[in-house]
C-alpha cells in the first residue's frame, strides 16, 4: 500500500473528529494518551544508544511518563524508529507497525530514519523510513542529543492533545 496515501487518510480522520463536537472526554483521553506513551523498542543502530541514554538517570524520561519501553508491539502505542532502516529490515519494520494496536504514532529519530542519512547513496538503504510507515515527528541529528528526543516527543504530545491546532500550524496559518 502507498504510505503517503495512508498518511493522508490518517490526517483526514483527524479532520473528521474536528467537525464533530469535541467533548471533554475526548480531550481528557488525548491528554492521557500524550502523557503516557508506551514506546516499542525499535532501536536499530547508534540512535538507539542515545534513546537508552535518555532513559537513564541524567535525562530522565520517566519524569514525562514514557519510560515503559515495551518489547512487544502489541502492548505499545509509540514506535521510535531510532537508527538506520535498511532495505532488508524494512518489511519487518512494517510488520511490527501493523502489529501495534490503534491509536499509534511513529517518530523518526536521527537522520538515517528521516532521510537516509549519510548512507543515502548506498545500495542497501531506504531513503527515509517514511517510505515504510507514516511518520508523525521527525527528529534530525546524528545522533540527536537526548534533549532533542525529549523535545520531539513533547511535540508529539502537543500533536496528540490538539490535533486540529497542529494541523493548522502545518499549513502555515
Amino acid at each position: 500500500m502507498d504510505v503517503a496515501k495512508e498518511k493522508e487518510l490518517r490526517e483526514a480522520e483527524l479532520l473528521v473528529e474536528k467537525n464533530v463536537l469535541v467533548t471533554t472526554i475526548d480531550k481528557a483521553l488525548n491528554w492521557a494518551r500524550g502523557h503516557s506513551f508506551w514506546p516499542v523498542t525499535m532501536g536499530l543502530a547508534c540512535c538507539a544508544i542515545e534513546m537508552m541514554a535518555t532513559g537513564d538517570s541524567r535525562y530522565d524520561i520517566a519524569r514525562f511518563g514514557w519510560e515503559v519501553f515495551r518489547a512487544s508491539p502489541r502492548q505499545a502505542d509509540l514506535m521510535i524508529v531510532a537508527g538506520t532502516c535498511t532495505r532488508k529490515m524494512a518489511p519487518l519494520l512494517r510488520r511490527i507497525y501493523d502489529q501495534m494496536p490503534e491509536p499509534k504514532w511513529v517518530i523518526a529519530m536521527g537522520s538515517c530514519a528521516t532521510a537516509g542519512g549519510p548512507f543515502i547513496d548506498s545500495y542497501a538503504m531506504i531513503p527515509g523510513v517514511d517510505k515504510v510507515v507514516p511518520v508523525d515527528v521527525y527528529i534530525p541529528g546524528c545522533p540527536p542529543r537526548p534533549e532533542s528526543l525529549l523535545y520531539g516527543i513533547l511535540q508529539l504530545q502537543q500533536k496528540v492533545a490538539n490535533p486540529a491546532k497542529v494541523r493548522l500550524m502545518q499549513h502555515g496559518k
Binding site: P91, Y123, A124, I126, P127
Partner: peptide
C-alpha cells in the same frame, strides 16, 4: 549473508551500478 537472497548483482564489483532512489524506495515483500 549481508544482502537478501533475491538481490541481483554483486555490489563491490567495480561495474556495479547502484539503483536509483525511486527503485530503492520500494519496500520488499515479506
Amino acid at each position: 549473508i549481508y544482502l537478501w537472497d533475491d538481490f541481483e548483482g554483486y555490489p563491490l564489483r567495480k561495474d556495479y551500478v547502484t539503483e536509483s532512489l525511486e527503485e530503492r524506495s520500494v519496500v520488499l515483500p515479506l
